[in-house]
């Protein structure tokens, strides 16, 4: 028996919207830690890792140890679009061997209750171990600013060079029509803490990434006012959006490497 009641159902809607363009189908894992997912895009260039901790749910029951539920994200997105933004979402499944999952949507005043049953699928997914890394630079900035920069640069070029120095974090691209550079300096003198740009640098770092993926990651912007970008030479970048009081969604993107 699995029963997860999420009062802020819109969080789940936003999470799936941020993943569905990159991930076709994935196993959601339910364990005592929480509701989680790890999946790669079909080219194995990006890895997505989601955790919604069990204590963030109003009710969290998961009796079967680690219980993977294979879902096609496009179908899950269709179903979650039927939930109102203020609805409470309950996820129910009988356990291993059962091939359906039920989503129940309750309006805040309880005047409308809907349930949608979705078929589960068997998915062979490879779980990757993500080693603890010492990052050369960790930058926290407003998520809307990061989204704006990725969108702006993709009208000029296909790749972005992200460099962190004492001066700040620089995003550069070039394309047929010209070049673009955007520098964000550390800025902690802001009225609201979420507007700050905070740069922790152990050593300067510069890496090249495909902008198409970065732009996809920014679909998670509605989940958090801030984004954290962690960089180390010749390692995947980690773009993390915290999910209020519940967990996170992390996007890992393999760099482009000079041959």
């Amino acid at each position: 028996m699995l029963e997860l009641r999420l009062v802020q159902g819109s969080l789940l809607k936003k999470v799936i919207e941020s993943l569905k363009d990159l991930v076709n189908d994935a196993n959601f894992d339910c364990s005592s830690t929480g509701f989680s997912l790890q999946a790669m895009d079909s080219s194995h260039v990006a890895l997505m890792s989601l955790l919604l901790r069990s204590d963030g749910f109003e009710h969290y029951r998961c009796d079967h140890g680690n219980f993977p539920m294979g879902m096609k994200l496009e179908n899950l997105s269709k179903i979650l679009k039927c939930a109102g933004n203020d609805d409470i979402i309950t996820i129910k499944a009988d356990g291993p061997g059962n091939d359906t999952v039920t989503f129940m949507f309750e309006s805040p005043s309880q005047e409308k209750i809907a349930d949608y049953e979705m078929k589960l699928m068997d998915i062979d997914s490879e779980h990757l171990g993500i080693p603890e890394a010492e990052f050369h630079a960790i930058v926290r900035m407003p998520s809307s600013e990061f989204a704006r920069i990725c969108k702006d640069l993709s009208s000029i070029g296909d790749t972005v060079v992200i460099s962190v120095t004492k001066e700040g974090i620089k995003f550069s691209t070039k394309g047929d029509i010209g070049t673009a550079n955007v520098v964000c300096r550390q800025n902690t003198t802001v009225d609201k803490p979420e507007d700050a740009t905070i740069i922790e640098m152990q050593q300067p770092v510069s890496l090249t990434f495909a902008l198409r993926y970065m732009n996809s990651f920014t679909k998670a912007t509605p989940l958090s006012n801030t984004v954290t970008i962690s960089l180390s030479s010749d390692l995947p970048v980690v773009v993390e959006y915290k999910i209020a009081e519940m967990g996170y969604i992390r996007f890992y993107l393999a760099p482009k490497i000079e041959e």
């Binding site: 080219s43 194995h44 171990g129 995947p236 393999a254 482009k256």
Partner: peptide, 14 residues
């Protein structure tokens, strides 16, 4: 020329 690397060359199954 920059070549796109894959996540699987950094993280291994486990």
């Amino acid at each position: 020329v920059n070549k796109q690397s894959q996540i699987t060359s950094f993280f291994s199954p486990g």
